[in-house]
Simulated assay, not measured.
Amino acid sequence: MRRIVWLSMLLLSACATPSERFAGVARGLGFDELTIRTERFAHRIYSHAGVGEGAANKTLHVYLDGDGTPWLQKRWIAEDPTARNPMILKLMAQDSAPSILLGRPCYHGFSQTDACSNKFWTSHRYARPVVASMAAALNRWLETSGFTEVVLIGYSGGGTLAVLIAPYVEKVKAVVTVAANLDIKAWSEFHGYLPISDSLNPAVEPALSPDIRQFHLAGGKDDNVPPFISAAFVKARNGAQVIVYDDFNHQCCWVEAWPAILNKISAGSRAFIADGFR
């Protein structure tokens, strides 16, 4: 009987959409789910259970996922761009601080809605309407909470969005990016891709306020977003810091190291300097 149930679960999982599988993992980790709608898009938000309880004067960690799967086999545009590997959830699950995952427009089950077009996960993935809607959704969520400070934590393309969103959320006090393509022109040229010409490029946007701490983490063996991209971005911005983990690539080994990384972020830049990171 158990074998039949197990096989049935596998079959259901195989038939599920990427959004459904992602939501299933979130539920399995005990995260709550809600939807916030802005003037243009709907956004899925996953949060630690009880994140709103006793939040006054506390810091909220806001996680932003990467680009997921915009293309299938680099040839066909995906119908659902939601991440097939929910690594962002595994990071958030290890975070003892109050935290939420802010979903991107047209991800997490909204790809076929009237407001959405596949351009919002391909050429316009970092476009102004995407940035504006994500900032509006976060500000709306914060209105009903007691949090006084926000740390934006973005993985891959989510790091790109974290830098772009930060100026529009007054409570942001720090931005942490992990393997993020912070210069989308340099990243496209490195891979020989067509330029993402209808998206905003953090590398040419105005620098963030010096009041916002910036930690940009890169993997020394990352052949998707090589560390020179983060290093060049940081070089032009006073106060920002790049931290290169020599043995990490785009996916390994961020999940395993995440608790230690969070401790260093809480301690500030001196903790990374003491450990000899550059």
Rank of each mutant, 00 (worst) to 15 (best):
N238W: 00
A240G: 10
L29I: 12
K74F: 06
A16D: 12
N201P: 11
G219A: 14
A55K: 07
D275R: 13
H216I: 02
S47L: 11
P226R: 04
S269F: 07
E170H: 15
L12E: 01
L164A: 00
D65C: 08
A232M: 10
N224T: 15
S209T: 07
D211F: 03
G68R: 01
D80A: 07
H250I: 06
K264H: 09
A135W: 00
N57P: 07
K58H: 11
A271I: 03
L194E: 14
A132P: 00
I36C: 06
S8D: 03
N85S: 12
D183L: 09
P210T: 12
L102N: 02
V176S: 02
D198L: 12
Q241G: 02
C116L: 09
E143W: 09
I88T: 15
P210G: 06
Y168G: 07
G219K: 04
G66F: 00
D80W: 00
P195M: 02
A207L: 03
S197M: 11
F110A: 08
T17L: 10
R104E: 05
A257R: 04
R125E: 08
I45R: 02
T69Y: 05
A162V: 03
C106T: 10
R278C: 13
R3T: 13
R125P: 03
G158H: 00
I196V: 13
I229C: 10
D198K: 14
F31G: 01
Y168E: 14
S156N: 10
N201S: 13
K119Q: 10
S199M: 07
I273K: 15
L29M: 11
R237V: 08
V204D: 13
G68V: 06
H61S: 12
D222L: 04
P129E: 08
V131L: 08
L102V: 03
Y126I: 02
S156Y: 07
S230M: 01
R75W: 05
F120T: 08
R84G: 13
S13Y: 09
A271K: 04
L12I: 03
R40D: 12
K74T: 08
F277T: 02
V204C: 13
D80V: 05
M9H: 10
I229S: 01
T82I: 07
L34Y: 12
M9W: 15
A174S: 14
W254Q: 06
I4N: 04
R37D: 13
G220A: 14
W76K: 13
W121V: 09
L152R: 02
V25I: 11
R278W: 12
V25R: 07
S8H: 08
F110T: 03
L138H: 03
I212V: 15
T82P: 11
E53A: 13
V163S: 01
I165T: 11
V131D: 01
W254I: 03
A203T: 10
T160M: 09
D247Y: 03
